[in-house]
């Protein structure tokens, strides 16, 4: 499906989502509560069939977190980007999408390791890059330690 067709499909089935105009991937912004159902239907619907989660990452805008999912379909060769905004900076939590794509396990481990966003129903949430003893979440904007010479 092309960008306009995807947009039309999403407008029909998920009217509460917002869209962004971008040059490359079509971007959908959803609420936290609708995330799991949206992604599940995107995976399972035969007209969209997004069977590849090729990236899941997070961005720290100073007032909120954003968790970004990059989806792709190996049958239709179309891509989609789904974004979720999290406002809680103390204990950010989100549903894990491990039940939909198994690749999310390591992506979510990395996001937890570097940002501190906890994922519910994750099989094994742990620090995979920094080592188990690391304190703090380095990719947050308010992180500083002795190694960073210019904060």
């Amino acid at each position: 499906m092309s960008k306009e067709e995807l947009k039309a499909y999403l407008e029909v089935n998920f009217p509460t989502c917002k869209f962004e105009d971008t040059i490359d991937f079509p971007v959908v912004i959803v609420e936290q509560g609708q995330l799991l159902s949206l992604l599940k239907s995107l995976r399972e619907a035969p007209s969209t069939d997004f069977d590849l989660l090729f990236c899941q990452t997070a961005v720290d805008y100073k007032t909120r977190f954003e968790v970004i999912y990059h989806l792709s379909s190996t049958t239709f060769r179309h891509d989609l980007v789904v974004k979720v905004l999290l406002d809680d900076r103390e204990h950010p939590e989100l549903e894990s999408i491990f039940s939909i794509w198994k690749a999310a396990e390591l992506f979510e481990n990395e996001i937890f390791d570097l940002f501190g966003i906890r994922f519910l129903n994750h099989p094994n949430l742990r620090r995979i890059i920094l080592g188990d003893e690391w304190q703090g979440y380095p990719l947050r904007k308010d992180y500083t330690d002795a190694n960073i010479l210019i904060p």
Binding site: P138, Y143, D145, I148, I150
Partner: peptide, 10 residues
């Protein structure tokens, strides 16, 4: 990575 990195050995 000297100034800004949290994990590179200087």
């Amino acid at each position: 990575f000297y100034y800004y990195s949290y994990s590179v050995v200087k």
